[in-house]
Design a protein around this nucleic acid. Sequence first.
DNA 1: TTTAGCGGTTGACATGGATCAAGCGAACTC
DNA 2: GAGTTCGCTTGATCCATGTCAACCGCTAAA
Lengths: 248, 248
Amino acid sequence: MPPTNPLNQDISLSVIKTACSNCNLRELCLPYGLNLEELERLDDLVSTRRRVKRGDHLYRAGEAFDAIYAIRSGFFKTDVLLEDGRDQVTGFQMAGELLGLDGISTEHHTCNAIALEDSEICAIPFSRLESLSREIHTLQHHFHKVMSREIVRDHGVMMLLGTMRAEERLAAFLLNLSQRFTARGFSHAEFYLRMTREEIGSYLGLKLETVSRAFSRFQEEGHIAVQQKHIRILNVSGLKALMNHRAT
Amino acid sequence: MPPTNPLNQDISLSVIKTACSNCNLRELCLPYGLNLEELERLDDLVSTRRRVKRGDHLYRAGEAFDAIYAIRSGFFKTDVLLEDGRDQVTGFQMAGELLGLDGISTEHHTCNAIALEDSEICAIPFSRLESLSREIHTLQHHFHKVMSREIVRDHGVMMLLGTMRAEERLAAFLLNLSQRFTARGFSHAEFYLRMTREEIGSYLGLKLETVSRAFSRFQEEGHIAVQQKHIRILNVSGLKALMNHRAT
DNA sequence: TTTAGCGGTTGACATGGATCAAGCGAACTC
DNA sequence: GAGTTCGCTTGATCCATGTCAACCGCTAAA
C-alpha cells in the first residue's frame, strides 16, 4: 500500500536501498563484523549509489582518486594499459568486492574499472572512511584485511602467470570463479561467464585461441560442459587434479 | 670518549640505534611525513630489532602473523610455494621497504621472507600499529598508501608476466632496481645483484638460462656490462626502448 | 526472413623460451 | 694449494603457445 505522501515513500525507499545495514552483502563486504550502531555510522558515509551500464567505466586510469567502490550488484573488470597499447586485465570483481584500492597510493587511479554487465556500486569517500576507521577499530581492522587479501590474491595471480601452463591457469580460473559464486549463494557448478575469451586470455596471460582450445579440451575430457558463455562444471576434482599436476 | 659508566653507553646506543627518529630511512619507510612528537610515539612501538643472516628466514608461510617488518639494512626475497613443489619469487625488498603485509589478511603469513644478505629489520607489532594509526592520522594515511603501493606494484608485475617478452621483462627489472637504488642514494648505473639468475628467473617467470642469455644479449648490444653479479648500465634509454618496443 | 557483425572454434604453421647437456670460473673447504 | 661445489654461460633441440587464417553460429538490426 502506498502511503499518503508519495514523497516520503521515495525518501524512505532510497534510504533503505543505500543502507549497508540492510544490504545482504554486508557479510562479504566492508561492514563485516560491525555491530548495529557501527553499521549505522557506516550508512551515513556510504551515501552515494550509482548505476554503471555494461561497457561503461566506473573510473579510468589517471583520474583523481577520492573514493573506493563496493559492488552492490553486477560484474566488473579492471585493466592496466602500457604506453605502447598493450593492456592486461588485472582482475574480475563481483558483488561485495571493493574497487579502487590501487588509487590510494598516488591519489590517482592506476587502472580502468569497466562494467561487464549493468551494475550498481556504492561510493565510499575515502577520507571519510579513514576518519571512521580511526573511531571504529573493527572497521579499521577489516579494511586492512581487505587490502591485505588483495595483495595475497595478486600473489596468486603472479604464481599462476609465472609458473602454470595454459590448462592449469584456466582450471584455476574456473575453480576460483566457482568458489566466489558459491560464497554468494549461487551454484558452484553452473554459471555464465560475463567476460569474453579475449578478456579471460588477457587476465591469464594467454591468447584467446589458447583459452578456446583449453575449454574444448576440458569438455572433451569431461571436466566441464561449455556452450558459449554458459559453463557447467562436471568434475571439480578433475579440474583440481589438472592444477597440481606438473611438478617441473 | 667513552662515558664513565659503560652500561649507560650501551643503553643509549641501543636506543639511538632502534629509533625511527634517528633512522636515515625514515623518509622512505613508515615514519614518512610524521612530526617529531609523532615520531617519538612510533619509536616506542618499534622496539624490536633483529639481525637476519643471509639465507635465513625472517618468517615462513603458515606462521602466525603478529608484526610487520621494516628493512633497516640488507636485502630480502619473498616467495610463495605451491603444494606440488613449484615456487615463485613474488618480490625483492630492500632497505626502507616493508615485509609481511600479506599476513594481515588471514593472520598467518602466506609467503616466505628470506634474507639474500646479512640484514637487519625492525619488527612492528601490528595491533599496536593499528592503535597508533587510530591516533595519528598521518601515520594511518601513509600506511594505507604503502599497502596500496604494494597492490599497484603487483599489478605491474602481472602486466610484466602477462604481456612482456623475456628481454622486456629483464629490462624492466633492471630499470626498477636501478631506480630503487637511486632513491637510496646509491649509483643508478652500477650495482651488485644480491640474487641468483634462478631467483631473477623465478620472479620474471623465466628459466635461468633465458635470463643468462638475455644478459649476454644486452651486453653484446652495449646496453649493459655484466660480470657475474656486477651490473653496469651503459645505456638507460636503450633499455627503456627495449621495454616499449613490441606493440602486439 | 535476411544480413551483418562479433565472439568463438578449429586447423596449419611459426617461434620464443624451455629443456637437456656440456663446460667454465669463482668461491669455499680441507 | 688442490679439490669440490655452485652459479653461470652457451649450444642443440624440442614443444607449448602464439600467429595467421578460415569458418561457424549466435544475436541483433533491417
